[in-house]
Nucleic acid binder design. Sequence first.
DNA 1: CTTAAAAATGAATGACTATTCAGATTGTTG
DNA 2: CAACAATCTGAATAGTCATTCATTTTTAAG
Lengths: 200, 200
Amino acid sequence: MRTSDKHQKIIQAAIKVFARKGFFSARISDIAKEARVADGTIYLYFNNKYDILISIFEEEIGKIILQVKLAIEQEDDPRQMLEVFARHHLSLVEEKRELAEVLQMELRQSNKFMKEYRNTKFIEYVDIISAIIHKGQEMKLFRADVLPGVAKRAFFGALDEMSRLWVLSPDPTYTIAETAKQISDIFLVGVINKNTPARA
Amino acid sequence: MRTSDKHQKIIQAAIKVFARKGFFSARISDIAKEARVADGTIYLYFNNKYDILISIFEEEIGKIILQVKLAIEQEDDPRQMLEVFARHHLSLVEEKRELAEVLQMELRQSNKFMKEYRNTKFIEYVDIISAIIHKGQEMKLFRADVLPGVAKRAFFGALDEMSRLWVLSPDPTYTIAETAKQISDIFLVGVINKNTPARA
DNA sequence: CTTAAAAATGAATGACTATTCAGATTGTTG
DNA sequence: CAACAATCTGAATAGTCATTCATTTTTAAG
């Protein structure tokens, strides 16, 4: 039967449960219950608990990358591209909150308990920013003395820290669009006030 | 006997073990072995495994806050203060790598498995940045339209993402001083190239 | 050198849960 | 409607470890 698609059902259940309890505290039986299947059924679709987490990373980040790349291709100004990336990244918290929680919390420390696993999808995601910065430098829009390896992390880190906050405690003080604009703005022109000389 | 100071010995051992295996995979017996005490001894000094982790957060972040505040007090220009903060934050990876790993990986997801625990020390740490930004705005050095709640997270996030990278895989491509300068620089004046008009 | 308190020990206990697999159920084919 | 295959089930297994506590060792006092 194709309509039930247990694989997908289990993945979605696992996202919910991992988001709620964290990977280690989540029980297989919790996931099974959430997915409305027997505990044993999970092992027909996944090798073990880690495998479920890895599948979430691979499959879900894969989808996100496709979407973001598509949105960025619509722009031709790197400055706009950064803002679009920012808006997409921040939107995730709103549109797929549970997935965002799992990626925020579990993805980062996955290296610690899954020694062999290299998360290439995640690298691919962050490298979208490198590409934008590189393009900006080629067009002489961005300073040449900006280190791309640092800048991409700075931009990503800024966005991600905001996501982390929102994931931990939703705060409607600033909207997504506003925050995306503000962060890309700071990144582009800085916080310095150019209208007033130093030693004001 | 005061010279042995088991409490401190256990904390230091726990930092090592948590850094190596992560909180959940770390066994109490691992920590005991590392600290050269019996398993049971740990429970004379801590209530349980979580309590060890919380003690690490409280005590070690406390020390860091003191140091950073002291260093920042030496400066009077907010722009310099940001760079000093950046250098301190990044230095942690080099000077206390194992502690940095634990804070990086476990602190962030602690809310997930310790529902009640609010990490006020961590908030206090990040708020050092708010204070700097606020001061910069008061002095009219920083733009007034910068949202302090976003800006402090953006700056902290940028730094922290670099730390995260270094913690995961030490990379001597850029030095700490260089990276600190670069990040505070981007934050202050942005990546835009002012010498060339747009549509270059 | 006692002796009592304090500190430390580590084997035993008790819970917990990922994973397995013998059997049940469901779907398919002729 | 067989008869077989594919899928699913969930109780049983097996291993792991945090925590306890009866006993031993160390320290301090008289």
